[in-house]
Design a protein around this nucleic acid. Structure first.
Lengths: 336, 336
DNA sequence: TTGAAAGCGCTAACAC
DNA sequence: GTGTTAGCGCTTTCAA
């Protein structure tokens, strides 16, 4: 049977409180006592009952990861990093998928936070830019950490990857290959990443004094289908690009499809870059030059930040910024 | 503040036990009482504290989804279905990723089940064919439902999709297009699905009296890279196939890559089919003819089965089998 | 530095 | 049909 704190106490010949002190690393316990308790804990293979702990104390040691994101590999990497770190720190992670376009979103979330007990929230974009959600968490005094927010006014801590810088670099890379007619397919306007990536693109173009023709800027939605539409426009209009920066890999894959249908050789006659290093970027031919965000590390760090925030212990910067990595593959080549 | 059962009791002017009876739908409460309690519950927006409930009762209302699977879209669909159904039935779902190749797998799982409280496990393949895990759960008397097991001897309930039938159908489809030199790239031998899909292929070939040349049967690993290796062999050896059945979409995508490099036109000169309806099957050109498993429904059903199993209430079949759907896209065409 | 006792919110057991 | 009481395993007073 499962051992309880009482079992440990009687085996060690001390009071339950002393056991509690030892397992919680509280001060004021003599080393001799600690040894006795630790031995008993080991012998009985004792672990605290998290339910009882949560019921008694004011914290449940449950962290909630709230997301609304159609990118499975992104979400899974986020989950894995967050679970890893949470477990390391003695927390459980509750996974909470939701749909940011759902009308009842706020009500759903409210029902969850009012009637279960989580110590904190991890909010991914685009949810972390939703003012109603933020207001709700603030109202209920629930600590949260935002992952990749676009708006950064709020005083809560956040973690992000330097999307603008990465977009700048990948655009510079295309320019370094000799391209000047570089089109961009933007992402969904609700996502902060969309704007940051566009800014990085613009900065690189401006810095190199390359004029950005409006006709080379297309509004996508981050979906494969939107990528197809934009690619078809770009490759049939008067001003045709020699390189296309798609704001994610799904849309970049769509460019490859349209190019194949039009018998445009990639990368010989058209260079294409994506963003995210999604599985498809490796599963397609030519494989995509793209940008890899350190999602796993971001998630781990966000959990650490959240726990610090919950414990109000150490001082921590409000912002943590992670650098992305360019991944050079086969969809780009020097301009002929 | 959060309301408790006591608040409800005093507002309704009844005892806590009566409130407990009402919120748990127990019998022997007069309608008038029920009304009073329900009104108070609504007014206070009361919800049970799951921690207290779990601590007191012998069940925690936590179900654990244990998986070890490199396919993000599969895992996420599974999660979503399971979460949906669990929440509907008043359970929480704990997500537990693990690595089936990890040496300490059993110890890790044992540490989890010994010292936290879950009412039941959902086991996906290949974990559900791991005898050590099954023995561990049996030893601890934890109910579990297996998802897509290969070995079906164990008496615990399981849910699966009819992989053999789907593989049979997609092979028949290729045959119906006039193909006879149909190669198969098998999946990782540790996965039950690998064998079922191979069986379905063999059955279709045998039924149509088509001899299966060993040279057309390649051992893959479900990875893109293994698909590349097999495709290169198939397309360079003496006996070249006119159609290839890859046991999943990743490997099918790899076939497309190798074919592109060898300037083999798909589907005109080579038909390719995959399995799983993974995102890549839509993000690649030509898009893949493949098989869609009803993963979401399988997950929901598995949760229902698990809850019934936990409650030992209704009789339920040990096996639930779901049919897959052929998805016809652009990677297949009649043999020239 | 240590321990006894109370109680978190709920449900099971038992009384009425 | 309804209420009282005990106690799940733990941590938090507060006293020693």
């Amino acid at each position: 049977m499962k051992s309880t704190i009482k079992d440990v106490a009687s085996l060690a010949g001390v009071s339950v409180k002393t056991v509690s002190r030892v397992i919680n690393n509280e001060p004021n316990v003599r080393p001799a006592m600690q040894d006795k308790v630790n031995k008993a804990v080991a012998e009985l293979n004792f672990k605290r009952n998290p339910l009882a702990r949560g019921l008694r104390g004011q914290n449940s040691f449950i962290l909630t990861l709230l997301y609304s994101n159609p990118n499975p590999s992104y979400v899974l990497e986020l989950q894995n990093g967050a679970i890893e770190q949470a477990n390391n720190d003695g927390y459980n992670l509750q996974i909470l998928p939701c749909d940011h376009t759902n009308e009842n979103l706020i009500d759903n979330i409210e029902s969850i936070i009012t009637h279960s007990s989580q110590d904190g929230f991890l909010l991914t974009h685009p949810l972390c830019d939703n003012e109603d959600i933020i207001a709700l968490l603030d109202k209920n005094n629930i600590p949260f950490v935002r992952i990749s927010p676009f708006h950064q006014e709020h005083s809560s801590p956040y973690v992000l990857s330097d999307d603008k810088q990465a977009a700048y670099e990948i655009t510079k890379y295309l320019i370094s290959l000799g391209h000047t007619d570089i089109a961009i397919i933007k992402g969904h306007p609700d996502f902060g990443a969309t704007h940051k990536r566009y800014e990085g693109y613009l900065e690189a173009m401006n810095e190199m004094n390359i004029n950005v023709d409006d006709a080379l800027v297309k509004q996508g939605q981050f979906t494969f289908e939107s990528g197809e539409v934009c690619a078809r426009q770009l490759l049939t209009q008067d001003h045709k690009p020699s390189a296309i920066f798609a704001s994610n890999d799904y849309m970049a894959a769509a460019v490859l499809k349209i190019a194949a249908q039009m018998h445009i050789n990639i990368p010989a006659n058209l260079s294409v870059v994506g963003y995210d290093d999604a599985p498809v970027s490796r599963q397609i031919w030519p494989s995509l030059t793209t940008v890899k965000q350190p999602i796993y590390d971001i998630a781990k760090h966000a959990v650490q930040k959240l726990i610090r925030h919950i414990k109000k212990q150490e001082f921590d910067d409000v912002q943590s910024k992670f650098q992305c990595k360019l991944v050079l593959r086969n969809s780009t080549s020097p301009k002929l």
